[in-house]
Amino acid sequence: MINKEVSSVAEAVADILDGATVMIGGFGEAGSPIELIHALIDQGATNLTVVNNNTGTGEVGLAALIKAGRVSTMVCSYPRSANSKVFPELYRSGHTALELVPQGTLAERIRAGGAGIPAFYTPTAVGTPLGEGVERRTFDDRDYLLVRGLTADVALIKGRAADRHGNVVYNKTARNFSPLMAMAAKTTIVQAASVVPIGELDPEVVVTPGIFVHRVVAVPNPGHEAELVAAGVSYP
């Protein structure tokens, strides 16, 4: 029998190594797997390269991981937001480096990485500072940049529901990068608000097929970042 369900978030993240590249799903708080991130803080892995669109807010979830000093490099498109205080400080002090990638290029790099495509050409960022020094080629009179696919050791994903095979469905705009990251990581770990019996998810609506998922853990009442930040919560 295939059973990818594990019993706790601690067990789910137990083998993540120092120096790992970790993709974390979410756009802002939508889809952010806060409980898995907190388990990773408790677990202690450090010198991580983290791929996420943003850098978290307040002092919970991704921002807490950065604040704990565990992230040596952030790969993201938009590391600024109203409540993002932690990353700017560690970036300016030189503790955390930044690889800035346009949002669509970031998404496609992750998709390509998961699809076995080592590099591709994109028109995005031609003629801008982010295109400087990047290999170029002209197709049909238009210039394109060659960018690399992106893979990871681990992906941390939040779903609405999953089953023991690892099939996942998401909640509204919480889907964002997660299906791509699930494809691009060697070990994809999903926290789901409910883990349902096999056969309950309609095959027509499964978004991430289980082949891309390695561990599933039930987190029945996941926290919401904005609520935690508003309540002044700081993790740990």
Binding site: Y91, Q103, T105, A125, L130
Partner: peptide, 16 residues
């Protein structure tokens, strides 16, 4: 020089 660079989807939008 002291700004945190942030681009989001703007470069993709204008390119496509």
């Amino acid at each position: 020089p002291d700004a945190i660079p942030a681009v989001g989807g703007a470069m993709d939008l204008v390119a496509g």
